[in-house]
Amino acid sequence: MSITLDPTTPEAQGVGTRRSSFARVPAAFRLQFTVPSAMIGVPLVVFFGAWAVAVGIGHWVRYLADGDPGPGYTGAAQATVWALAFMAAYSASHTFPFAMALSYSRRVFVLGAFLAFAAVSAGFGALFSIAILLERATNGFWAESYSFDLPFMTQNAGVAGAGLLAGALCLAAMMVGFFWSILYRRVSLLALWVIILGLVALLAVVVMVTTQNEWWPHVGDWLAAQSSYSFARWVLLLVLGVTALNYGVIRRAVPTV
Results as ranks from 00 to 15, higher is better:
Ile57Leu: 15
Thr74Asp: 01
Tyr73Trp: 02
Pro71Ile: 03
Met87Lys: 08
Ala79Asn: 05
His94Glu: 14
Tyr63Ala: 15
Tyr73Gln: 00
Pro97Ile: 12
Pro71Asn: 05
Phe48Pro: 02
Gly75Cys: 04
Ile57Phe: 13
Asp68Tyr: 10
Phe47Met: 14
Ala88Leu: 10
Ala88Asn: 08
Gly49Gln: 01
Pro71Trp: 03
Phe96Gly: 03
Ala88Glu: 08
Ala79Val: 04
Ala54Arg: 00
Val81Glu: 04
Ala89Trp: 10
Gly67Tyr: 13
Val61Met: 08
Ala92Asn: 11
Asp68Cys: 05
Ala83Asp: 05
Phe96Lys: 06
Met87Ser: 14
Pro71Thr: 06
Ala83Arg: 03
Ala77Asn: 05
Ala50Asp: 01
Gln78Asn: 09
Ser91Pro: 07
Pro69Leu: 01
Ser93Tyr: 12
Phe96Ile: 10
Tyr73Ala: 02
Gly49Cys: 01
Phe48Tyr: 14
Ala89Tyr: 08
Tyr90Gln: 10
Val61Pro: 02
Tyr73Asp: 02
Val53Thr: 08
Phe48Thr: 06
Gly72Arg: 06
Gly75Thr: 07
Gln78Glu: 10
Gly67Gln: 09
Pro97Asp: 12
Ala54Trp: 04
Tyr73Phe: 15
Ala52Ser: 12
Trp82Phe: 15
Arg62Leu: 08
Trp51Ser: 13
Phe86Pro: 01
Ala54Ser: 15
Ala83Trp: 06
Pro71Val: 03
Leu64Met: 13
Trp82Tyr: 15
Ala52Asn: 05
Phe86His: 00
Trp82Glu: 00
Gly72Ile: 05
Ile57His: 03
Tyr63Val: 14
Phe48Cys: 05
His94Ala: 15
Asp68Lys: 03
Ala76Glu: 01
Trp60Tyr: 14
Pro69Gln: 00
Val61Tyr: 08
Trp82Lys: 00
Gly75Asp: 03
Gly58Tyr: 07
Asp66Met: 12
Tyr73Met: 01
Trp60Leu: 15
Leu64Asn: 13
Val53Trp: 08
Ala79Lys: 03
Phe86Gly: 11
Gly67Leu: 04
Gly56Pro: 07
Gly67His: 09
Ile57Met: 13
Pro97Gly: 12
Asp68Arg: 07
Ala92Val: 11
Thr80Ser: 15
Phe86Leu: 13
Tyr90Glu: 09
Ala65Pro: 01
Tyr90His: 12
Gly70Ser: 08
Thr74Leu: 00
Pro97Ser: 12
Ala92Thr: 12
Pro71Gly: 08
Gly56Tyr: 11
Gly58Glu: 06
Pro69Tyr: 04
His59Cys: 09
Asp66Trp: 09
Phe47Val: 07
Gly67Cys: 09
Gly58Ile: 06
Tyr73Thr: 01
Thr80Asp: 05
His59Ser: 09
Gly67Asn: 06
